[in-house]
């Protein structure tokens, strides 16, 4: 074992041995790359890139309700826009919502949870009861409430989901911080006289990170579904910006006559969510030291 191999290297080896997780990772990477690419395209070139190589996802330039054909592999929608172009562009919204909302929730939730778990006492009671209150509402209902209060926009969807997912991280962070705080290295840090800030951020948090990472990847899947649900209800991204949930929603009236309008964005949601789940499960196994990749006779 060379000097630099740590737990990370071992976890990576173990993750690579899990074929489902590798498939999940591949799909997730693809979707995230697609999201990043479309985001840059929209921000820098005003959709010039995709229009140059394919079609503009927002301009109704074709005959409406065409079934899939070589010219339009996923068909066209009610307004005559290319479904494939819109599905590709939908990744922009889904990825942005999932990544930002979960990151916000993870950062806030983990800090609250780790601080509560390490400090105990009044800090813990107040923080965890607040988390319990948040958890008392069904996630989607709370998100709808927040969006309704703040207004219908993509940013508000992200804010709403960010708030809704805080408790998930706070709880996990607290319980793993509680377990880590029992370890002698935390006492050792106290004997050295390190500040509470140092102990929480540099000693406890890095050791409490594995379960949070797993939770983050699983919640990405939930966030994509939640965004799709909100868009389906008309609370999320406003037209003509394409989003997978919004596309499923507009296609719902044409399910019998033009199923491709809902089918392809629906498939994307399904595949992406499945991929995040597979990756999350794989991470859970890889990061758990008890699941060592021992061979058997």
């Amino acid at each position: 074992m060379s000097a630099s191999t740590g737990r990370t290297a071992r976890a990576w080896r173990s993750l690579r041995a899990d074929r489902a997780a590798v498939a999940g990772l591949a799909v997730v990477s693809g979707v995230v790359a697609l999201g990043a690419l479309t985001f840059l395209d929209a921000a820098l070139f005003d959709r010039g890139l995709i229009a140059a190589v394919y079609y503009d996802p927002t301009s109704p330039a074709f005959a409406p309700l065409q079934p899939p054909s070589p010219a339009h592999p996923f068909g066209t929608d009610t307004l005559g826009r290319d479904v494939l172009a819109r599905v590709l562009y939908g990744a922009k919204v889904s990825v942005r919502v999932a990544v930002t909302a979960v990151t916000v929730a993870a950062v806030v939730g983990s800090l609250v949870g780790v601080l509560a778990g390490y400090s105990g006492g009044a800090v813990e009671t107040v923080a965890m009861r607040a988390v319990d209150v948040l958890l008392g509402f069904p996630a989607l209902v709370l998100a709808i409430g927040v969006v309704a209060a703040l207004g219908f926009s993509l940013t508000n969807v992200i804010v709403a989901l960010g708030i809704v997912y805080i408790p998930q991280f706070a709880r996990i962070a607290r319980s793993s911080a509680l377990a880590e705080s029992e370890q002698a290295y935390v006492d050792a840090a106290r004997v050295q006289g390190y500040s509470r800030r140092h102990i929480v951020l540099r000693e406890v948090l890095p050791n409490a990170l594995s379960p949070l990472l797993v939770q983050a990847s699983l919640l990405m899947a939930f966030a994509i579904i939640a965004e799709a649900s909100l868009s389906f209800l008309g609370l999320g991204v406003q037209p003509p910006t394409p989003s997978w949930g919004g596309m499923v929603s507009t296609g719902a009236d044409y399910l019998t006559t033009a199923p491709w309008i809902s089918l392809f964005p629906g498939l994307m949601i399904f595949v992406t969510v499945l991929a995040f789940n597979l990756l999350g499960d794989g991470l859970r196994d890889a990061l758990d030291p008890r699941e060592s990749p021992e061979r058997r006779f």
Partner: peptide
């Protein structure tokens, strides 16, 4: 700075990360 402690279990008294 002046009083220090050596722990029983060297496995858990060093931060594994």
């Amino acid at each position: 700075g002046r009083v220090q402690f050596v722990f029983q279990d060297p496995g858990s008294s060093l931060n594994p990360r």
